[in-house]
Computed example of a mutant assay.
Amino acid sequence: MMTVYGMKVSGNCYKLQLLLARLQRRYRWVEVDSARGETRSAEFLARNPNGKVPVLELEDGRVLTESNAILCFLAEGSTLMPEDRWQRALVLQWLFFEQYSHEPYIAVARFIRLFLPADHPRRGELPRLLERGHQALAVMEQHLAESRTFFVGDSPTIADIALFAYTHCAAEGGFDLSGYPAILTWLASVRAQPDFIAMASA
Rank of each mutant, 00 (worst) to 15 (best):
M1K: 15
M2K: 15
V4A: 10
G6W: 09
M7V: 06
K8M: 06
K8N: 01
V9D: 01
C13Y: 11
C13M: 04
K15T: 08
K15Y: 00
K15P: 00
L16A: 12
L18G: 04
L23K: 15
L23Y: 01
Q24G: 08
R25S: 13
R25A: 04
R25H: 13
R26H: 10
R28V: 15
W29Y: 15
V30K: 15
V30A: 14
E31Q: 08
S34H: 06
R36H: 04
R36C: 05
R40N: 04
S41L: 04
E43A: 10
N48S: 10
P49Y: 08
P49F: 11
V53S: 01
V55C: 06
L56F: 01
L58Y: 15
G61Y: 04
G61L: 01
G61M: 02
L64Q: 05
T65R: 09
T65S: 10
E66F: 02
E66L: 00
E66P: 15
S67N: 12
S67D: 07
N68K: 01
N68T: 03
N68Q: 13
A69C: 12
I70L: 10
C72I: 15
C72D: 12
C72N: 08
F73E: 12
E76Q: 11
E76C: 01
S78L: 03
E83I: 07
R85I: 01
R88I: 00
A89P: 11
L92F: 14
E98D: 14
Y105K: 07
A107Q: 12
R110E: 00
F111C: 02
I112P: 13
R113M: 03
L116R: 07
A118L: 14
H120D: 10
R123Q: 09
G124Q: 02
R128K: 07
R128W: 06
L129M: 07
R132N: 05
H134F: 00
H134I: 00
V139R: 13
V139D: 00
Q142G: 08
T149H: 05
F150L: 13
F151L: 15
V152Q: 13
D154G: 15
S155N: 09
P156Y: 13
I158K: 09
A159D: 11
D160K: 08
D160Q: 08
I161N: 10
A162K: 05
F164S: 08
Y166Q: 12
T167K: 09
C169Q: 11
A171N: 08
G173Y: 04
G174V: 00
G174D: 09
F175C: 02
D176N: 10
L177C: 11
L177F: 11
L177T: 10
Y180T: 03
I183Q: 03
I183Y: 04
L187D: 11
L187S: 07
L187V: 06
A188V: 04
A188P: 13
A188E: 05
S189Y: 12
R191N: 12
A192C: 08
Q193P: 09
Q193D: 07
P194I: 09
P194V: 11
M199K: 06
M199G: 09
